[in-house]
Design a binder for these strands. Sequence first.
DNA 1: GATGAATGAGTGTTCATTCAT
DNA 2: TATGAATGAACACTCATTCAT
Lengths: 192, 192, 192, 192
Amino acid sequence: MGKKIDIVRTASHLFVTQGFDGTTTAQIAREANVTEPLIFYHFKGKDDLFSYILKTGSDKFFAGLEAHKKDTETEFEKIKNYINFNLRYVGKNPDESFLVISACPAKFADPDHICQKIIKRHKQIIESYLRDCIKEGIKKGEFLNVPIKETVRLISLIVVGLMRQRSFQKKSTAGLNKTTIEFCRRSLLKNP
Amino acid sequence: MGKKIDIVRTASHLFVTQGFDGTTTAQIAREANVTEPLIFYHFKGKDDLFSYILKTGSDKFFAGLEAHKKDTETEFEKIKNYINFNLRYVGKNPDESFLVISACPAKFADPDHICQKIIKRHKQIIESYLRDCIKEGIKKGEFLNVPIKETVRLISLIVVGLMRQRSFQKKSTAGLNKTTIEFCRRSLLKNP
Amino acid sequence: MGKKIDIVRTASHLFVTQGFDGTTTAQIAREANVTEPLIFYHFKGKDDLFSYILKTGSDKFFAGLEAHKKDTETEFEKIKNYINFNLRYVGKNPDESFLVISACPAKFADPDHICQKIIKRHKQIIESYLRDCIKEGIKKGEFLNVPIKETVRLISLIVVGLMRQRSFQKKSTAGLNKTTIEFCRRSLLKNP
Amino acid sequence: MGKKIDIVRTASHLFVTQGFDGTTTAQIAREANVTEPLIFYHFKGKDDLFSYILKTGSDKFFAGLEAHKKDTETEFEKIKNYINFNLRYVGKNPDESFLVISACPAKFADPDHICQKIIKRHKQIIESYLRDCIKEGIKKGEFLNVPIKETVRLISLIVVGLMRQRSFQKKSTAGLNKTTIEFCRRSLLKNP
DNA sequence: GATGAATGAGTGTTCATTCAT
DNA sequence: TATGAATGAACACTCATTCAT
């Protein structure tokens, strides 16, 4: 009964560790203890399986993020919260997380492809979240007068880098996590 | 005559844009205007071609870095120099750079594989370069008393993220570049 | 309730337009608005479904032919009647007709296979019908002294060709029909 | 060296006896004593192999027909010549002939598909040949005043039927051949 | 009578690689 | 150096069919 889930979980893990092209449907079937045709019974094909993982992964992430949002006194608390959420989330869901932040297979490069749409939406939501924090923090006088767009991209890039280390290279990021937050605090706050 | 170079250049580009597994020797041959067996005349196989690119790419990078090293008054100048060098280098050699910093195909996961060795050496050299700067900066009183290992990893991660954007997503990083340096300056220096 | 009939009708049509091997049980199920296992509930398998169609098609054809036989003054009237019946029949039952006259899938080539038996019987009945007409016509002095066996084969071949055009290529054969009868009349009759 | 020809010949024969869908590339390879990938080295795919056979078969047929055309005293001699040529040709090239006259796989139904174009051209050339004979015969007073279009279709249909018997059912058509010509003679000529 | 889930045995096709020249 | 022909092993995917319900 849970065979569809087995397929999804096994595929997610293999796509992360071996890449989409480096993973065969035969291997997914073998490691999920199902027969190969069952993959094609539940999904239109390997591509569709990948898209499905991406979509459900992205949805789950935002559901978690939404539930995690809290009102905080300072804007920096929000950014800190966001970084912490990301790292805790990726710790619990290393595979799905990685696929969304990592580049998807080149063959899905068409911007109209569902994968590109999911990834784009993912980035937009995250960037708009950070942008609001920084804008507000500057307005309130909490933050230095940093260039907004670039700072958003930089923090995004840092968070993605941390997630990548955590999910792909399986390095613990415990100490790194704290260092990063302090690094950002000193760079953003007027009075760190 | 220059056919070996054509193969290497074409392969580098395709490996970056499509991944190792997503690139076929047939495609490399076609786009390099050579026949497929010629690839196997010059290289032992597709794996060997990849390793060759990685090795020469890494060597070239360090040759450039070595030539670029200057004695500067402050340690932060050195870090700034390093960031700038990376971004200028990746602008000129987007393909080779990317392959070294990006994860290599899962099938080369064996730590004894030459690719893993190249990548490991690459990381070590970069990290030791940054570590020296930070250690020295702290000793001199130029930098705050930041945790060394984590800060090195964080800056590495930022630089890799910038290179990734530049080489893979082809985004210009002009503004981002400057913002990043200021971001680091405020975080590292006692008197920014 | 009428689902078995839906399967048979849909399958007949698809077998004619796409061939036996070119038609999948999945497609039959889809276009008949049933689920695939239902086909296997009603028939032993795809082969059995085909045989069933062939058998009922052939039976229906002969029932119609029997009902259509009339006593006519001349033997040529009988042949004309036969040609007309065939074409009218194929107009109303294009699919079943075609399957009987067209060659059946090569995998049923074994002469002991039920399909071969049906097709053989079909040909025999038709040829014996025509043979009787021609024999009698020659004896009566109505027809020229044509070689019987070959003339039967020729007329069979013409009728099958007409049916094929009608059922498969969906060409109207209205004018062709009349021309054919006149063609035969001139060739067969002593005094056309 | 002759392996490409082996593939073509084996495939032609199998397509005729088993149909396009009933023939697997594995079987073609096995019976042609080549490996399967070689088929795909010489042809883009199974479809392309089929189209190639159709095209070369049709071209060869017309080359033969052209070489066979003779000036004859009567128009009926031309038609007789044509029928004889067809049957002699199909005797020597049973496979290619059959594929051109037989319906091609339903999946190539698109009128823009090269197979449809070949088949259409084939029909047109044959019909125009016959049309010219009949038109001229009527004008000369050699033939009865038969309806041209329908008579062309009828004779085409007869010839195709004969070829089909010869090539597919492997029946000898020696006697049938002569009977057919006499049949047509009586039907067409004013003074048979 | 009817179905969702599942599968063994293929299907056309592609791959990196080799060989004879 | 360079290539046209060839291949073993694998690839994503489909097929007719079955089974539990």
